[in-house]
């Protein structure tokens, strides 16, 4: 697998940072490849802009930050507007269909989207697991980490009483990605 640079963006409270930690953990602890995760965020978390980055590679990762991502996950309009120009020429954009209006896509860019937020609210009655649906969708579309590793990393990082709900959301994400 080539080195993949992923930037995940949104607003505080959407679980963007947790998603990136789960991805990094799945890759490095369970898929036994390498990952680096970094984050920047404003001083007020909830509602503030969140930007977090994960690099995943088989080789050792030396340079730890991303200038031009291969994949951009944008879960808010501002996150999309601020970041889509940085994407590599043949990059992938993943957005929440109901939260982000994608206009004027450059040629060569692959665009995927799903109603993660809506599904979490309507099917699972829990907005907080929208990020898990996004992760499932991400996994199905990109196959950068294995589903098994993702499930194990989620089990490590979410409160145990919410694990079933989180895994259900992940599976729904996988299904809409198919």
């Amino acid at each position: 697998m080539k080195k993949v640079e992923i930037r995940l963006t949104g607003v505080g409270g959407q679980g963007v940072v947790l998603s990136s930690v789960i991805l990094g953990r799945a890759a490095s602890v369970y898929d036994k490849i390498n990952a680096v995760q970094t984050e920047t965020y404003g001083s007020d978390m909830r509602g503030g802009d969140v930007c977090t980055e994960v690099i995943i590679a088989e080789e050792r990762i030396i340079y730890p930050i991303i200038n031009n991502p291969d994949i951009l996950v944008a879960l808010s309009q501002k996150a999309y507007d601020d970041n889509f120009n940085d994407l590599k020429a043949e990059g992938i954009i993943i957005t929440d269909s109901d939260l982000v209006n994608v206009s004027s896509l450059k040629k060569g860019i692959i665009y995927y989207h799903g109603s993660f937020n809506k599904i979490a609210i309507e099917e699972l009655k829990k907005k907080a697991v929208a990020n898990m649906a996004m992760l499932g969708f991400f996994q199905e579309k990109t196959k950068i980490v294995s589903l098994d590793a993702l499930e194990k990393a989620i089990a490590d990082l979410v409160p145990s009483k919410t694990l079933d709900l989180n895994l259900k959301a992940l599976q729904i994400g996988v299904n809409i990605g198919k």
Binding site: V21, G24, R25, S28, V29, N34, A35, V36, Q37, T38, E39, I61, P64, I65
Partner: peptide, 9 residues
């Protein structure tokens, strides 16, 4: 701060 907050194996 970047090393302090960076996650890696």
């Amino acid at each position: 701060s970047l090393i302090g907050h960076m996650r890696e194996r």
